[in-house]
Amino acid sequence: MHFLKVLVERYIKDGQPVGSRTLSKDAGLELSPATIRNVMADLEDLGLVVSPHTSAGRVPTVAGYRLFVDSLLTMRPPSEEDMENLRQRFTGPTDSKSLVEATSRMLSGITHLAGVVMLPRHERNAFRQIELLPLSGARVLAILITGEGEVHNRIITTEHAITRSMLEEASNYLNRMFTGQDISEVRKRLLEDLKNTHQNMDALMMRAVTLAHDVVAAAERTDDCVIAGQTNLMEFGELANMERLKHLFDAFNQKREILHILDRCIEADGVQIFIGEESGYDLLDDCSLVTTAYRVDDQVVGVLGVIGPTRMDYQRVIPIVDVTARLLAAALRQ
């Protein structure tokens, strides 16, 4: 596997298929060209490298990168210059949105890749109070107050007009059941109640639960992320196809699929790496994502990382992503 490590490191550095002569020189071993060619053929048979087009050299496959990252990688701690740059970026902004934007730009600037940072979730927002008020026709104004004192209004159209007294009864029921509970837990409970049969709940309460679910779902913080440095990816030849870049930038603009990938990292421990098609998202088949969650008060509140070509400098990027998550968490705590 020494040869695979040398081949991947050379390809990450140059972006050119690696030939047997280069491999022999980099490996520092006195082996005949025939022996090196046999090793290359073995690696190809194992699906770890492939020969592109008519080139005599080889490039790593996704499986080759995966083996390299999991078993052969020698981590390179961030340099003093990188650490100083990182620390300086966290001395300015104080609100979470500004911190997230600064972190995304900083990740992009230091790694020369695209930086992506999920805005902090507020899942510990408590359900404080809900009021349901009748409007004209069959419309209801739902007012939800959360633990941080935020007020969320939603106008909901119902199948039938509901009287003020019925809505008061429903509001009292919901406040009695859910006040002080985590808003994401409230939504789960309401969903469960809606899935239950009507055995234990009359029609009014069913409608009240439906109304409450709609307004709680709307009030729950919609995940968002900040992406910076997308144009850095134009510097990599393998990504610089205009059609591919157009689709990639569309994905960055829509964010939905990228947020879905980040969401999968919320519960994971440590740094997560998606190489090529491992992300499950076609538009990122030529890219890798290196991500990690960041915590406040020992609770995961978001995910950050970088997106770049599969031949990114993993040994430098992974420690930078890890350190950045710790610095962002510390800044948010303050």
Rank of each mutant, 00 (worst) to 15 (best):
M1C: 04
M1N: 06
L4D: 04
K5L: 03
V8P: 01
G15V: 09
Q16A: 13
T22C: 11
D26P: 08
A27P: 01
A27V: 06
T35S: 08
R37L: 00
S55E: 01
S55V: 03
P60H: 09
A63W: 03
Y65L: 08
L67T: 03
V69W: 02
S71C: 00
L72N: 02
R76K: 10
P77W: 14
P78H: 15
E81D: 14
M83A: 15
N85D: 07
N85L: 13
L86Y: 10
R87Y: 13
R89C: 12
T94A: 07
T94F: 13
S98E: 08
V100D: 01
V100E: 07
V100K: 07
T103V: 04
S104A: 15
G109S: 09
A114H: 04
A114V: 12
G115I: 02
L119M: 14
L119E: 10
L119F: 14
R124N: 14
N125C: 13
A126T: 13
I130D: 00
P134H: 10
S136I: 10
A138V: 07
R139V: 02
L144H: 06
G147K: 08
V151Y: 12
H152D: 01
R154A: 11
A161F: 10
S165K: 12
A170Q: 02
S171Q: 04
S171R: 01
N172C: 11
L174Q: 02
L174G: 01
F178Y: 13
T179H: 11
G180T: 08
D182G: 11
E185Y: 15
Q199A: 13
Q199H: 11
N200K: 07
D202Q: 05
M205P: 03
R207E: 08
R207Q: 12
V209P: 01
L211A: 04
L211G: 05
A212M: 02
V215W: 00
A219C: 08
E220M: 15
R221Y: 14
D224P: 02
D224C: 05
C225Y: 08
V226H: 09
V226P: 03
V226A: 12
I227G: 04
A228I: 06
L233M: 14
M234F: 14
E235M: 14
F236W: 11
F236E: 06
L239M: 12
R244T: 12
L245R: 06
K246C: 10
H247G: 10
H247L: 15
I261S: 07
L262V: 10
D263P: 04
D263F: 12
I273H: 03
F274I: 11
F274V: 11
G276Q: 07
E277R: 12
S279D: 12
G280M: 09
L284D: 05
D285M: 14
D285W: 15
D285E: 14
D286Y: 14
C287S: 15
C287I: 15
L289Y: 15
T291S: 10
T292R: 06
A293M: 01
R295E: 05
V296K: 02
Q299I: 05
V303R: 03
V303I: 05
L304S: 02
L304M: 03
I307T: 07
G308I: 10
T310S: 12
R311T: 08
D313M: 04
Q315T: 02
V317H: 00
V317R: 03
I318L: 09
I318W: 08
D322I: 01
D322Y: 13
V323Q: 01
R326T: 09
L327Y: 09
A329L: 01
A330W: 06
L332Y: 05
